[in-house]
Amino acid sequence: MECVELLKKLSNMRAVSGRENMAAGEIAELFRQYCDDVSIDAFYNVIGFKKGQGEKPGNVLVTAHYDEIGLIVTGIEDSGFLRFTAVGGVDAKVIGAMEVTVHGKEDLFGVIGVKPPHLIPPEDKNKGIKMEDMRIDIGYDGEKARELVSIGDMVSFNSPARELLNNRMAGKSMDNRSGVAVLIEILKELQKIKHDDNVYIVATVQEELGLIGAICATYNIKADLGIVIDVCHGDMPDAPSDEAFPLDKGAAVAIGPIISRKHARECIKLAKEENISYQIDPEAGDTGTEAAVLAVAREGIPVILLSIPSKYMHTTVEMISVSDVVATGRLAARYIAGRSKE
């Protein structure tokens, strides 16, 4: 599948954190054609295994989370409106007047209602709105709504991925399905080149709730190199210049205390040699990504973090560049195939 089609398919999947069973099968299917073995664990982490050709293969673990932020139904009113709260970091300011799918007994179309400007008293105009004051309208009365929807049902946003100018795409879940696309780009690339090491490609769950899938997945896989693929902030007019990265300039390779300096340096060297675009992402803390988990899993796994610049993170129009996805996949695959071992 070409990368654009792949990204569309991935971004449009629905897998709200904690209910990734909705998409685990589809992800496994995508992995299957490139892997020697694919399994789904008890938490719905999807684990692809690609055997290495070396005599004494090491183990490389590559993770990218595939859960998405969303909403969860917390109450059904007699009028049929649904109350809800966030699953993961949802910004209440940007979800008004949004189309959604309520995953009830069946998938239901709904909209998040907003008060028309005419009815907002002047003193409230500049006030933020709280999620607990918003409702989802599924067009049914209370009785029918209760029949179709239960408290605890998940809600995902409707925002089909679209192609834009200059090889860019926007969609609801580029964080982090573009990372999953990189996983598949890595697998594709590894079909073409010889690699000594066994590679575990893991699409993880519940990252948005606290890196939970990675914590579980890393316990059972003993790796001597970890590669985490996630998104970072794309360059925007009012973003700080050392915390946001331009699109189309390749993967942002992290450097910082939690990252293996040796592997990061070698990865950068490789990118230079092979003419693969990259940029440097200085990370002073533990990065807040799955790299923080891998680094301290079991005895500790030396880890690198490759991030795809994404604008408008945690909105329904997260924007990435397809060329960055391809470049990141190539860099990671080449590094896996060519890495030096001590």
Binding site: I212, I215, C216, A217, Y219
Partner: peptide, 21 residues
Amino acid sequence: QFEILVQGGTDAGSIHTTAGG
């Protein structure tokens, strides 16, 4: 009934990420 707690956690939170989950 169903519990969706906006604040606070329980032991389930630390049990479910123990070892391999």
